[in-house]
Design a protein around this nucleic acid. Sequence first.
DNA 1: ATCGGCTCGCGCAA
DNA 2: TGCGCGAAGCCGAT
Length: 453
Amino acid sequence: MIQNERVRTLNRKRIRQGRYVLYWMQASVRGEYNHALEYAIREANGLNQPLLVFFGITETFPEANERHYYFMLEGLRETQLTLRERGIQLVIWKRSPEVGVAELAKDASLVVVDGGYVRIQREWRDSAAERIGCSLVQVESDAVVPVEEASPKEEYSAATFRPKINRKLDYYLLPLEETSPQVDSLGLDVESFDVSDVEEAISRLDVDRSVPRVDGLHGGMQAAKRRLEEFLREKLDLYPELRNDPTQDYLSGMSPYLHFGQISPLYIALRVRDTDSPGKDAYLEELIVRRELSLNFVHYNDRYDSLQALPSWVRKTLGEHEADPREYVYGLADFEGAATHDPYWNAAQKEMAYDGKMHGYMRMYWGKKILEWTENPADALRIALYLNNKYELDGRDPNGFTGVAWCLGKHDRPWGERAVFGKVRYMSSKGLRRKFDADAYVRKVESVSEGQD
DNA sequence: ATCGGCTCGCGCAA
DNA sequence: TGCGCGAAGCCGAT
């Protein structure tokens, strides 16, 4: 089912007589469970034309490095093969996407695009909408509920957002049927950047090599599905009890795959819903309410990476405590080198640097302590976002921006006033020890990071 | 182990 | 206009 609300036009131009329909794959890099792809196939069939799919690689995506590119290329390679089996050609160009799509659109009847939420993706679509001479249609496949359908405005908290999005689930939690292309596009003669050997492909990209790929964690839908099935089979039942224990591995691990569009959130939601596990409500809360609240934040607040995005009570209270003496003050190098006085914080930083992901519970503690141990909240925000975006495989995701903002009070309520934090919620190492064996977490991270050094 | 207070603002009910 | 309640906590009292 492709609900009409998933589809909207981005310019006022017409469908014209071209040689093919073009699908600009921007955020949903997968050959299955992709509403934009299925919509484009149906349009192409209606025009009796082939469907060409385009993906543009830019070597200068802000804050991206080899770790991210490698994971992305693995997914891209698999997608190309999946599409080929469906008779669809995926063309990859080493060019900025909005330029590449405009070039290929010269011979297109219609261009379809999916869509990411962060600033640069939005700018690319705006730019492409002007450059392209035919109709440009966006189809939402990155959210279970399209952002503007879930809510018409920026939400104050999960509490205000939850009932709004939950009301829409019956309408949106429906499977997506596949359509077969009537006209094969494999014969179209278009050059493409070769990703069949990912190792070799990445060597031909001039990208930041300062952060290495994560050993043993591979991109692509097959890897995502294997991980998901293992989670459903072995972990979902205990998810409500163990998800906040970083010494355990009871999280789904879907966020890197979701970030790169390699698995559909709708597909995950349907797989989870169709179990009878006691953990399913807790998981769907995270996947839908919490994840899509982050899309709401980034979509409606274009200052999502700035202190301006925080509610007024937060800015007021942090301002009043800006001159408070800090017990510890660290700079970026101290944080990045995991060289604070706090073994728990250092372990969290190392986990992220080596594994490309930090346990969800530790992400909160990690961010709260950066706020506590920097000169001012502006420095804290800058440092937290820099490290998150550099080391997390799902860095630069709406979830990351929202998670860091939450540490500074976004989507939260005021709590007892104290130094530095003011009324923003505080977290302590004592709290960690109360909830789980924090020293066991440090040992766990050490054993992994020593193995990789 | 468990509870209440901390403190703001949204949104529903009246 | 009043009122209940909230994404992950902390802390002190019982």
